[in-house]
Design a protein around this nucleic acid. Structure first.
Lengths: 346, 346
DNA sequence: CCATATAGTCCTCCAAGCCCC
DNA sequence: CGGGGCTTGGAGGACTATATG
């Protein structure tokens, strides 16, 4: 492990025009320039125009470091997100960025290389060192949650996480999607469709989402009086879904499978198809996420759509409220079952 | 369109401990604290320890705004990336973040809501206002390229783009993946597999990648003496691929199709399957990107894998070199054909 | 070799000044 | 002569860099 080089030790570049330069050129004081830049009303239109012209001539841009120094506000929020191209975190991140833009903030990003939890601590510290005003953490695992709760951030932190218990700290809030309800709806749908038993192909159990989906599945089975065969735990990838599918073919197929995400379902479909198992006739299948391709899998996949956009917006709203003083501590978004051919027995 | 609120106008929060506070507590001058924080050697171990203890006690963190003010270096790089969950941009972004972390920089991110080009200008300006030291632009379209070239950034800018001509400006560089070669390899592979003609389902032609893939396809056809039927232009999504597939089924099928990306190919597969067209027997198909699920489509998809990780690393390297003074102006990464069942006639 | 004092960075806030009615 | 609109100067703010003891 090497210590990253310090960007501040490299050669200094040419000086950009300052407010004083603009003031000189426009024949006013630096204070008047500041007024113009910040749209303060008490400036004569004529003066304002002269200053604006000087700004344009010099290509002046207000120095955000100096501004942040005096206002104590950087205009930057940090986002910690697991590294990966998975649809869920990516969509959530996009929604966050959208909401941040709307609120006039810039997002700084740190990616977590799970399961290396120290990457979370390092990223969080880099943020705080940067002077972010708040942090959103896409906190999928216990490890990440612990790391965050151990660091005294002194700024609002919002967890985008299905964790049952969040760190009980003043400035920490949470938003989540109703994983459990979504999983229960998926399972109930399979049971209602005629399956007397639903096998759950579960995601990694150190992920909160995966845990919650297990809980939802179990609740639906119990409430329908169906058996609860032990969930099979695996990863999140299509490759792992495929491997598991081959194993199921060898060891015996259940009438229905609820896969913890769409990629797993995709891999399962591949394995089943390869061995002549018909979906949904022999095995009904439901996934989770409704990723963009899901409607075009073979067969089109029944799945659970999460409100990622709502999640991102709610997280930003938490931070905005917290920066104003009175945040809503927790909020839960909905998930919606999308029925397609993989579960519909004709 | 509303003007985003100014984060700097909200209420000010409590003051964090400063270097002076630490100095007081440790009984030294603030300059000595600065030495300790920056690992300057000229501090007695005993003093150093005392300062460290004071830092820990107070939970002191160096104020990056003040530091940036005096060093003229923010430690932040900006990334402009198209909004969307597409595999390519997402992977590239991850690679960028990786490389940035390695180099000790934090990434600020702005997403482009194409085709609204003003979103690019706004995002770029937000970055420059923030004081980023360099900008990486995932510049997929002519529009984005133009916007960037019209703004005087005064910092190094690297374009991750397949554009043939980049803005000819001092600090602007570019890195790309060999789209053309990849597309040519895909097409040649189909022709070598027995198809006497390859139809190209092209992506939106305002995207450079889409343009280059057309060029590669055409070059391969010409060089093999095959005809070059007019490419069919559509979007990037599976939905659009599906719609186009239905159209092809109605209007007559070619012996082989080269789709501009994997999602299009996925949609095509869906449409063909629905109408009893066998792949690869009736129509051979190749995609582009090698997204994570591609190996599990029905049938597993032959595609072109791009070196996104290399792309991100090369972009960061450009910025690092440019900040040091002597960048390599352009660099091209490779693409690799991955053969799977969708093109292999048994 | 180690520590301190001082100047400089660029901005925003505050108090005070000018002018004209 | 007082007051409101416009402008100015100076005081921080937290740090690094450059002498100076």
């Amino acid at each position: 492990m090497t210590v990253p080089p310090d960007p501040a030790s490299a050669p200094v570049r040419a000086r950009a025009p300052s407010m004083a330069d603009v003031a000189d050129r426009a024949g006013v004081s630096h204070q008047t320039v500041s007024r113009v830049v910040n749209n303060h009303p008490a400036v004569l239109p004529e003066t304002r125009a002269r200053v604006r012209a000087a700004i344009a001539d010099l290509g002046y841009r207000r120095n955000s470091a100096a501004r942040a120094l005096v206002t104590r506000r950087s205009g930057v929020l940090g986002v910690l997100t697991p590294a990966g191209t998975a649809y869920g975190p990516t969509s959530t991140f996009l929604a966050l960025e959208d909401a941040a833009q709307e609120a006039g903030y810039v997002l700084a990003v740190g990616t977590l290389r799970l399961p290396h939890e120290d990457s979370a601590a390092r990223a969080l510290n880099r943020f705080l060192g940067l002077g972010v005003e708040g942090v959103a953490v896409i906190a999928p695992t216990e490890q990440v949650l612990r790391v965050v709760s151990e660091i005294d951030a002194r700024v609002p932190v919002v967890m985008l996480s299905s964790a049952t218990r969040l760190p009980d700290r003043p400035l920490v809030g949470g938003v989540s999607v109703a994983q459990r309800e979504g999983a229960a709806a998926a399972t109930a749908h399979l049971l209602a469709g005629g399956a007397n038993e639903v096998l759950h192909v579960a995601g990694p159990q150190n992920w909160f989402d995966a845990q919650e989906r297990v809980r939802g599945w179990r609740a639906a089975c119990v409430s329908a009086g169906a058996p609860t065969p032990a969930p099979v735990e695996t990863g999140w990838s299509a490759r792992e879904g495929y491997a598991l599918g081959l194993q199921l073919v060898r060891e015996g197929l259940p009438p229905a499978v609820f896969a913890a995400n769409d990629q797993l379902a995709l891999g399962l479909l591949h394995a089943l198809r390869e061995h002549g198992v018909r979906v949904p006739d022999d095995v009904a299948l439901v996934g989770f996420d409704d990723e963009p391709g899901a409607a075009h899998y073979d067969p089109p996949l029944t799945t659970v759509r999460q409100d990622f956009a709502g999640l991102g917006a709610a997280a930003m709203q938490y931070l905005a409220e917290a920066l104003d003083g009175s945040p809503t501590p927790r909020r839960e978004l909905t998930a919606e079952l999308v029925v397609r051919a993989s579960s519909a027995r004709v």
